[in-house]
Computed example of a mutant assay.
Amino acid sequence: MEAREILLPGFTVVGYKIEANLDEIEAGLGKQTYDALISSKDEIANQTNGNVILIQIYPMKPGFHPRVDRFTQIFGYEVTSADRVPAEMIQYTVPESKYVTYTHQGLESELGITYDYLYGKWIRETGNEPRGYDFEIWDDRYKPDSPNNEIDVFVALK
């Protein structure tokens, strides 16, 4: 599958927010947050579907390194309205933007290959610039420990 550019309208999610580096996330914080979201799913009103959305917001600073520097992750569900946000959760609105999208196929542990391709080779070859955030959609194809896993990745572009 080829990466392609698309324009998406803005949308709102309700869920949990964490700030950590990639090592902390991979050491269990990400899984704990995902599990908390899944167990609280029924508390989130006005969901558009059952897909988990993982939003990652990066500090736009020279030399940013995700294994060392902290960044924001939001685990949530898209909602049509965020008029009732459960305690300890947040609402976050993703603006309309142009994105490069690509479907990662394979183990979740190999997702770095997809990100390296999008943020490295694809952006360099197309002359685009990242906007400082990306998101993933985890739908019924999300099977993180299976080679049949598929994750749709969207990198926001300036």
Rank of each mutant, 00 (worst) to 15 (best):
N46A: 13
Q47D: 04
T48A: 11
T48K: 15
T48N: 14
N49V: 01
N49T: 03
N49S: 10
G50E: 14
G50K: 13
G50F: 06
N51S: 12
N51V: 04
V52E: 04
V52T: 10
V52D: 03
V52L: 11
L54K: 10
L54C: 09
I55G: 01
I55M: 04
I55E: 01
Q56I: 04
Q56R: 11
Q56T: 08
Q56G: 10
I57L: 12
Y58P: 00
Y58S: 01
Y58L: 02
P59D: 02
P59K: 01
P59V: 02
P59A: 02
M60T: 11
M60R: 12
K61V: 15
K61R: 15
P62G: 10
P62C: 04
P62K: 12
F64E: 04
H65I: 10
P66R: 00
R67F: 11
R67V: 08
V68R: 13
V68G: 08
V68N: 14
V68Q: 14
V68A: 13
D69Q: 06
D69T: 06
R70I: 11
R70M: 13
R70G: 15
R70V: 13
F71M: 09
T72Y: 13
T72K: 15
Q73P: 02
Q73Y: 07
Q73D: 06
Q73G: 09
Q73N: 12
I74K: 08
F75V: 03
G76H: 00
G76L: 00
Y77C: 03
Y77D: 00
Y77R: 03
E78L: 04
V79W: 01
V79R: 05
T80G: 15
T80I: 12
S81M: 10
S81H: 12
A82V: 05
D83T: 09
R84K: 15
P86N: 03
P86K: 06
A87G: 06
A87N: 11
A87L: 11
E88M: 10
M89C: 06
M89V: 04
M89D: 03
I90F: 07
Q91L: 05
Q91V: 02
Y92S: 03
T93G: 10
T93K: 14
V94T: 05
P95Q: 05
E96C: 08
S97N: 08
S97F: 02
K98Q: 09
K98E: 07
K98L: 05
K98W: 04
Y99P: 00
Y99I: 01
V100I: 02
V100T: 00
